[in-house]
């Protein structure tokens, strides 16, 4: 038996095309030894949930800079729950004002990373909080 690999999906829900952060993070996860599925810009929450299940990922990292996170992030969590995949951990990043944190945590988002977050801190968070299934 080989070591269990952490699988992560990095996704950009909504219409926003600012993918610098998502792409940098995808590379960083690869360099940290994770298997990363990057699904590109302009994904609907439905597409993200289905892809996450087909790819059997441990973690979905959502990135949104348009301000639509209050709808999009909780919707992904909700859809995973509907598809009996609530064990998949969902985190978010982008331009997220602090006043929205509580609402997002409450909806099931496990962590939020905003501009200035260090890549290493994000990787550490994953190592500490994500147990490959």
């Amino acid at each position: 038996m080989t070591e269990r690999k952490i699988r992560i999906m990095v996704a950009k829900p909504g219409l926003d095309g600012h993918d610098r952060g998502a792409r940098v993070l995808a590379r960083c996860f690869r360099d940290a030894g994770f298997e990363v599925i990057y699904t590109g810009c302009h994904q609907t929450p439905e597409q993200i949930a289905v892809s996450a299940i087909q790819e059997d990922v441990d973690l979905v990292g959502l990135s949104c800079l348009s301000g639509a996170h209050r709808y999009l992030f909780p919707r992904v969590v909700e859809l995973l729950k509907e598809k009996e995949a609530e064990d998949i951990c969902v985190i978010g990043g982008g331009i997220i004002p602090e006043q929205d944190f509580e609402m997002l945590y409450h909806s099931g988002i496990k962590a939020i990373f905003t501009p200035g977050a260090h890549l290493d801190d994000i990787v550490d968070w994953v190592r500490q909080n994500v147990e490959p299934k």
Binding site: A26, F29, R30, G33, E35, I37, Y38, E55
Partner: peptide, 11 residues
């Protein structure tokens, strides 16, 4: 180098 991978075909 890292044992990680970036899987981008499904895009």
């Amino acid at each position: 180098f890292s044992g990680g991978a970036l899987l981008g075909d499904r895009i």
